[in-house]
Design a protein around this nucleic acid. Sequence first.
DNA 1: TTAAATGATACTATATTAGTATCATTTTGT
DNA 2: ACAAAATGATACTAATATAGTATCATTTAA
Lengths: 140, 140
Amino acid sequence: MKIINKNVDYALRSLIHIAKENGQVVSVSNLAEREKISKAFLRKILQILNKEKIVNSIKGKSGGFVLAKIPNEIFLMDLINIFQGKIKLLDCFVKKNICPQKKECILSKKMEKIEKMLIFEIKNISLASLLNGDGKDKPI
Amino acid sequence: MKIINKNVDYALRSLIHIAKENGQVVSVSNLAEREKISKAFLRKILQILNKEKIVNSIKGKSGGFVLAKIPNEIFLMDLINIFQGKIKLLDCFVKKNICPQKKECILSKKMEKIEKMLIFEIKNISLASLLNGDGKDKPI
DNA sequence: TTAAATGATACTATATTAGTATCATTTTGT
DNA sequence: ACAAAATGATACTAATATAGTATCATTTAA
């Protein structure tokens, strides 16, 4: 059971790559070749990142992508939200209320707590912190 | 993006239901009817829980299932492991080492930390704590 | 003016999850 | 004795999500 899928994986690698170019335009061809990822697949991912304003695109020959934000304003959480949808530990429990004998479902309460904690932690992982290696994330 | 699937959902409901019967044998027919879940699907789930020694089965007419452990020795984590496999935030990052310029992949380190925390929290959610509503789990 | 890039979008393939069905065996209740 | 009601094992189908490919249109620098 993996939590993070390939879209997010590749998106993250791409962003790391682009960030390291320090503002220079990076094309999908370039990225694909250097990261050894299918070009067609990467294109789709970068197009989405563009729509979501994580990167900006430069059209035409010698075009490509640059970051649309500084690295410490790009979070792993954003990528997960974009490519996998909002994290929910469970769909059903809260709605279906599996412990109906209680005023409030105990499980759902516990889950909410854990969910919040998980989201809080992931939310703090910025691209910057992955780049510079100081392990520091943007304070809240 | 949901983290917990239907097998785990239904397994948990079934266990809660069985636990409340206080040692009385509960058949799948009974469970299915009362929880409004497909009988065939539930059967498969209970068979797995039996193999995994979470419940014991009583064969033959008026047979069914009882808990094989006391409720505070049954954890949500067990169910997730059984039905969804071990939780991993990522498969790929650690192996593929997406930041090869570093001695150790920063992302993978961060992920490991979060993963451990998540597992720690989930590990402590016992069936007992969902039943009695005191919110207390078995201490470690 | 053409080659190399992205934009939009439709399509296919694979894997996972969800759900159904069936035959065999066990065992209680009549 | 034996039929009914249960589980055991297992194979199968359906639906959904993930992964990956392909194509035509548009843009723009060389």
